[in-house]
């Protein structure tokens, strides 16, 4: 049984910056530390990156593996979410979660329209809890989004809105799919 919902929001930042903030993987473990304790790269296959996201509990390292795929220039999908270790009793044994995050630039506004689609495929006995699961996912997404936006807004006060992208494009800066990102969003024009 499939339960689908969408979260849509206009973000007060230019589209390339929203994409860069998503690809800026070095902040995942720190800015979003409330959401995860550790991150390991399991596999990289072109635009697909499988990671193991873990939490420490009861002296164990528990979490899940998930595959994230980049659809340039501004779409991201997550799927194949499985418990790690596999024996760990997790909702991911019975619920298949797929998400699609899209960023688009509304006309004549220097902002970004974010659309986050979620599909939960679950057995009938979990169906009564779909509302709870939706609220949980919405809350986590909102929290992560708020942290990213707070970072962007602080940087905007420091370097100006027109220069927000520069730090992500610097040679030494590491982020997922950087070549593809640079191909679509170019080089900065100011220092």
């Amino acid at each position: 049984m499939k339960h689908r919902f969408t979260v849509a929001e206009e973000l007060d930042c230019p589209l390339p910056v929203a994409v860069a903030a998503y690809l800026d993987c070095e902040h995942y473990l720190f800015l979003h530390r409330s959401l995860t304790d550790s991150l390991e790269i399991v596999k990289v296959d072109g635009f697909k990156i499988t990671v193991r996201q873990s939490w420490k509990a009861f002296g164990l390292k528990l979490g899940h593996d998930k595959t994230g795929e980049y659809f340039p220039p501004a779409e991201f999908r997550i799927y194949d979410v499985v418990p790690a270790p596999r024996w760990f009793p997790s909702v991911h044994h019975v619920i298949d979660i797929k998400t699609r995050l899209r960023y688009e630039a509304p006309d004549e506004r220097d902002t970004t329209m974010m659309t986050f689609d979620v599909e939960l495929d679950m057995p009938f006995f979990v169906w009564p809890f779909r509302g709870f699961l939706q609220r949980l996912i919405e809350r986590m997404h909102a929290e992560q989004n708020a942290e990213d936006l707070a970072m962007i807004k602080r940087r905007e006060t420091l370097v100006g809105r027109a220069n927000l992208l520069n730090a992500y494009l610097r040679d030494h800066h590491f982020c997922y799919h950087k070549d593809e990102f640079v191909k679509h969003f170019g080089r900065p024009t100011s220092a």
């Binding site: 993987c25 991150l39 990289v44 030494h172 950087k178 070549d179």
Partner: peptide, 24 residues
Amino acid sequence: FNPNQETFACMTGLYKTHKPDAAP
């Protein structure tokens, strides 16, 4: 220290536009 160098070590050299040696 940049703790991410360990986390993403297996991805070093994957992107032509990433030049860690250019770090200031």
